[in-house]
Computed example of a mutant assay.
Amino acid sequence: MLQPDREFLIKLAHTKMPYGKYKDRDLIDLPEYYVVWYHSKGFPKGKLGEMLETVYTLKLNGLEQIIKNIKRNFPKK
């Protein structure tokens, strides 16, 4: 996985799940089992898939707080 750029991380911090059981929940706040399920099933194509893959990597490494800090320090425009 390439290192995400600053704008990507800021956008990730403010992106909500657009559909399904967790619709309107911040991606970073999705339950770990749900993100792991997506990892095994295959992430969707496009930007959402990239963001979910990043969330998976962050959760796998216990780094969710990075996105939560970004969300707090860079309010949605």
Rank of each mutant, 00 (worst) to 15 (best):
residue 2 L to W: 09
residue 2 L to F: 11
residue 4 P to E: 14
residue 4 P to H: 12
residue 4 P to K: 10
residue 7 E to S: 13
residue 7 E to K: 15
residue 8 F to L: 04
residue 9 L to D: 04
residue 10 I to G: 00
residue 11 K to E: 14
residue 11 K to F: 10
residue 11 K to G: 01
residue 12 L to Q: 02
residue 12 L to I: 02
residue 13 A to I: 04
residue 13 A to D: 02
residue 13 A to V: 02
residue 14 H to P: 03
residue 16 K to W: 10
residue 17 M to V: 11
residue 19 Y to M: 15
residue 19 Y to H: 13
residue 19 Y to G: 07
residue 21 K to V: 08
residue 21 K to A: 09
residue 22 Y to K: 08
residue 22 Y to F: 15
residue 24 D to S: 15
residue 24 D to K: 12
residue 25 R to A: 07
residue 25 R to S: 08
residue 26 D to K: 14
residue 27 L to K: 00
residue 27 L to S: 00
residue 28 I to E: 01
residue 28 I to T: 08
residue 28 I to R: 03
residue 29 D to A: 05
residue 31 P to N: 02
residue 33 Y to G: 05
residue 33 Y to H: 12
residue 34 Y to H: 14
residue 36 V to L: 06
residue 36 V to R: 11
residue 37 W to Q: 11
residue 38 Y to C: 11
residue 39 H to C: 06
residue 40 S to N: 05
residue 40 S to M: 13
residue 41 K to I: 04
residue 41 K to C: 06
residue 41 K to L: 11
residue 42 G to C: 12
residue 42 G to M: 04
residue 44 P to K: 04
residue 44 P to D: 03
residue 46 G to C: 13
residue 46 G to F: 04
residue 47 K to C: 04
residue 47 K to G: 04
residue 48 L to R: 08
residue 48 L to K: 08
residue 49 G to M: 02
residue 49 G to N: 01
residue 50 E to I: 07
residue 50 E to W: 01
residue 52 L to F: 07
residue 53 E to Q: 12
residue 53 E to C: 03
residue 54 T to E: 13
residue 55 V to W: 01
residue 55 V to F: 00
residue 56 Y to R: 06
residue 57 T to V: 14
residue 57 T to K: 12
residue 58 L to D: 05
residue 61 N to K: 14
residue 62 G to M: 02
residue 63 L to H: 13
residue 63 L to S: 11
residue 63 L to G: 13
residue 65 Q to M: 06
residue 65 Q to N: 09
residue 66 I to T: 10
residue 66 I to E: 03
residue 67 I to H: 04
residue 67 I to Y: 06
residue 67 I to Q: 15
residue 68 K to A: 07
residue 68 K to P: 03
residue 68 K to T: 13
residue 69 N to I: 10
residue 70 I to V: 14
residue 70 I to E: 11
residue 71 K to H: 09
residue 71 K to D: 01
residue 71 K to G: 02
residue 72 R to A: 15
residue 73 N to C: 09
residue 73 N to D: 15
residue 74 F to P: 00
residue 74 F to C: 08
residue 75 P to K: 15
residue 75 P to I: 12
residue 76 K to Y: 10
